[in-house]
Design a protein around this nucleic acid. Sequence first.
DNA 1: ATTAAAATTGTAATAATTACAAATAAGTAA
DNA 2: TTACTTATTTGTAATTATTACAATTTTAAT
Lengths: 147, 147
Amino acid sequence: MDLKYQIKDRLMSAGVKPSLQRMQVLEYLTEHPVHPTVDMIFLALSPAIPTLSKTTVYNTLKLLEEQGVIQSITIDEKNVRYDADTSAHAHFKCKGCGKIEDLYSEVLNPNALEKYNYLQFTDAQVYYRGYCTECQKEFNERFSINK
Amino acid sequence: MDLKYQIKDRLMSAGVKPSLQRMQVLEYLTEHPVHPTVDMIFLALSPAIPTLSKTTVYNTLKLLEEQGVIQSITIDEKNVRYDADTSAHAHFKCKGCGKIEDLYSEVLNPNALEKYNYLQFTDAQVYYRGYCTECQKEFNERFSINK
DNA sequence: ATTAAAATTGTAATAATTACAAATAAGTAA
DNA sequence: TTACTTATTTGTAATTATTACAATTTTAAT
């Protein structure tokens, strides 16, 4: 049972102190790759950690995302979903049952999705986040003051 | 000034009765392609339509999306954004200033984004929505009862 | 002009998330 | 250990986006 050690290692190498709560959240996310909501995680861990607060779950997820350990998924317009798999892959949300599946590699291009005709998709969204030209410039200028 | 007529036409051909409120919402979205929030739309139209209710803005946006006239964008985890351009294009959100830009054609594949190295993007998300195999099957079965 | 249907409005309810201060736990130096 | 400092967790309250719903107004039809 070296899963616990792997989890601990992932946290430590990301500079996150491996507290009980943090380990449990990350372990749950890793073992349940169904892109759970904050509430699902909280409800699942509560029995094991009776003192657990939902705020801690929020704090932990935020921290883990900032450190690049996990990613948040906004494919559902109601709740944010979380994913311990940060490798490049796409997501598919079924508008029937609501489940969110992973799609890998070749489907990153919507035009290539025709191959996956067993899935009837009604819309495709491609989102990038980062820093625009202006904000980069501003950042560079601020940085060069101390040069 | 045939913009008003174009707007009215887009509504009518989508089977949406072109009321004052609906026309104004769609016109605003078309003229301000900055992916505004519900609140931004409401605040912008309030002076012109003093009786306007925020619920109407919600209702209208929901209706227009259902009829395929506009699309909603969940790139921002806080507020839903709206876009009158329903053609295939990707979105880029600046984590500095928060603005959301459009990216076209070739960048639909994240692997091709290297060309756009003026943008420093920190993450890419590809979302599909539709119906999974199980839900399709269930739908087909229900449908075939009356066959 | 009357009536019916559709659209809009306002208020209240719901629910996700955040803010924040208090409590607890962990870490460090004497 | 003890005292002290810092980090983490917790609980409550506040905030905010969205939805529910009933009442009102507008539109369309007879």
